[in-house]
Design a protein around this nucleic acid. Structure first.
Lengths: 240, 240
DNA sequence: TGATAATTTGACCGGTTGGTAAACATTACA
DNA sequence: TGTAATGTTTACCAACCGGTCAAATTATCA
């Protein structure tokens, strides 16, 4: 028992469709969004809501382990409604990765060649630990992805990420050459800082289980910071 | 069009069913397995095959991301056949965890209170790195599990694992007290060794992507070993 | 060697999952 | 304020997924 729409209509045009018009007589009529080139208030809000929910779910279950229904639930909207904004599960995941990757790499970008080496390394560790504490979901999102072979982000890893690391590795190498820190492989140094700090986000359950109820409070980040700063600063000091 | 079995039969008795008999007249007849108390050659072989395949699949996709069909495919047998040996996906996963966890903790167990502290730490790092190189799937199996909240192994983490770590932490603390190594939080030291070494298994794709084609050969484990030994040994040296 | 037990398979089932179609409801601009 | 355009919902579908069943096949041992 189908009912014709009362008036002609462009029909369902998802927010991510760039342009789609209809011929009326001999001129093409574009939908409003295509004319104004602007996203609706509702679009901004809903996409925000969805990405927040997607982060929650993807980071906890990985891509394949997450379902659109779960995300819709967390976002507080119906599944088809969610699919109106992101047409596939992949699209949501991609949008999320794109949004998060940049801020995730910020601490490394802040690594300053002109600064004091020891102070730079120390503050890099501290910043990474703060991110592990304040944005564990973002960390787990990437961890899940990389762990399962990074099917959706290999490009980013081999491109922008490698480039950035290459650049910073050169800085570290120059510090070592100038005798400001011990000679060491800069790449493995960066890996070591990444792994030790992100460990507190990615393996949080394990860390808390091992520390036990009494020591698993927020203080663990301070303890970790103290230990890691000491380890890296002393471990990288020049020795003869 | 059902056909009666030509002769009486115990029917489907999965290998993990302990005992199940039938009354024939007035005496109970037990199946052969119950009488001989022995597992078949075929059972040993097939369970081995299945667990190997399960390791491959679970470690690459996580629990929820893996399907029984995938595992059956890799194991080279039909799904119902696989389910004849392990009655549920959970049972397979559990069997796998149980088998792997022990060997996974071996290096930490080998940590010797009587040994030379620096040598012990150095050899622990080396052993963990060797495991990351030789058994990356085992590492990823746990990483996937822990990352997603360790739903299936919380018990192991809070029980046997915590206990073992507590014990070894005490050893480290005594070394520090005796002035053999720098004073430091033993738990965070262990976390640091775990994370830096397992990083090369769990984040392998990322490591290889960042190192680039030329440096991503097997030599990366030697480079990592050199760097990490140096870092921890120097970082833990007593200073005044 | 033949009966009995162990193993394997194809067909199937109910629930879930990613995604669609079309009707309905709301918003925003001319 | 009316109407074109945007946003939401209900009902649905086909593929997938974990698991079962009964029959067929193969191995074992008295």
């Amino acid at each position: 028992m189908l009912k014709k729409p009362a008036r002609p209509n462009f029909g369902q045009i998802a927010p991510d469709v760039i342009c789609l018009g209809v011929w009326t007589g001999d001129e093409m009529v574009l939908p409003r969004a295509a004319r104004t080139q602007r996203r609706t208030r509702i679009q901004e809000e809903k996409e925000e809501q969805i990405l927040e929910a997607a982060l929650e779910v993807f980071s906890a279950n990985g891509f394949r382990g997450s379902t659109i229904d779960q995300i819709a639930d967390v976002a507080g909207m119906s599944k088809p409604n969610l699919l109106y904004y992101f047409r596939t599960k992949e699209a949501m995941h991609r949008a999320l990765i794109d949004r998060v990757l940049d801020t995730w790499l910020d601490p490394l970008r802040a690594f300053d060649a002109e600064g004091n080496p020891v102070a730079e390394i120390r503050s890099y560790i501290r910043r990474k630990l703060e991110m592990a504490r304040d944005f564990p979901r973002e960390s787990r999102l990437f961890a899940n992805e990389v762990l399962q072979g990074a099917p959706h982000i290999v490009g980013e890893l081999k491109g922008p990420l490698k480039q950035l690391v290459d650049e910073k590795a050169e800085v570290i190498r120059s510090w070592a050459k100038a005798g400001k820190i011990a000679k060491c492989d800069p790449y493995h140094l960066i890996f070591a800082i990444w792994s030790t700090t992100q460990h507190y986000a990615d393996f949080d359950v394990q860390v808390r289980a091992v520390l036990g109820q009494e020591n698993a409070g927020e203080g663990r980040f301070e303890d970790a910071a103290r230990f890691l700063e000491r380890l890296f600063v002393d471990g990288l000091q020049v020795r003869e």
